[in-house]
Simulated assay, not measured.
Amino acid sequence: MSQDEPDLDAAYGLKTPDDSKRLYAAWAKTYDAGFAARMDYCLPERVVQAFVECRPRGPVLDIGAGTGLVGAHLAAADLGPVDGVDISQEMLDVAAERGVYRRLFIGDMAARLDVADGTYQSVVSSGTFTTGHVGPEALDEVLRVAATGAQIAISVSKAHFEAAGFAKTFAKLEGQITALELKTVRIYGDKAEGDHALDEGYMALFGRR
């Protein structure tokens, strides 16, 4: 990692949407070959594997699409069409080079996305609901853009799940969701090193009533 390249501690320390935009603008071009490769970042693949087992249908919204790691795995599973939203235009520019998205657009999950109610038959998100990023309040927006009967898969880091109160939020949403299942998953693979190498998250799998 170069001295100028952002790291996980910087990402987890984000406070505002503008902070996120600045960090990911600086990180976009080196994210895949640097961080993702160095940390053996396998969460996107594992989320998509669990998602596909739920037999989702398109169109799919990839929340926090970043450089398109989830989109690439969805394409490999022949699932689509896929749209991607992220707070960073620079990250989306990298994702666009993969050629796997129907549409990529800027959006902040703390606000309202430029998406009509019930647009998507499936919603997936990997690595976005985590410390310094998106909290449980964004689940309302996830459900707004999901169609009745939609399949949803969202990863949440364990530390963030507990600290931000995701369990209470899911309980409040009981009348809007079905078949909630939480699966523990490692965020990084066996090649990862450093303080975060053994970090875990939950995969929240559920349907939209």
Rank of each mutant, 00 (worst) to 15 (best):
M1T: 08
Q3R: 14
Q3N: 13
D7F: 05
L8P: 04
D9G: 13
A10E: 06
Y12R: 06
G13F: 08
T16F: 08
P17N: 13
D18L: 14
D19A: 14
K21W: 00
R22A: 13
R22P: 01
L23D: 03
W27C: 05
D32P: 03
G34C: 09
G34V: 10
R38F: 08
C42Q: 15
L43T: 05
E45C: 11
E45K: 14
R46W: 05
Q49D: 15
A50W: 04
V52T: 12
P56M: 12
R57T: 12
G58S: 12
L61V: 13
T67C: 10
G68Y: 06
G71N: 05
G71H: 06
L74Y: 01
L74E: 04
L74H: 01
A75T: 09
D78A: 15
G80Q: 08
G80E: 06
V82D: 01
V85L: 09
D86E: 11
I87D: 00
Q89G: 15
E90S: 14
D93G: 15
A95Y: 02
E97G: 14
G99E: 05
L104K: 03
G107P: 01
D108P: 04
Y120T: 07
S122T: 11
S122H: 04
V123R: 05
E137L: 15
V142G: 01
A147W: 02
G149N: 07
G149A: 13
G149V: 09
A150D: 01
Q151I: 14
A159R: 11
E162S: 15
A163F: 08
A163M: 10
A164T: 06
K168N: 07
T169S: 03
A171N: 05
I177G: 01
I177Q: 00
A179S: 11
L180V: 01
L182T: 02
T184M: 10
Y188P: 04
K191E: 07
A192E: 00
A192P: 03
D195Y: 06
L198H: 08
E200P: 05
Y202T: 02
L205S: 03
R209T: 07
R209M: 05
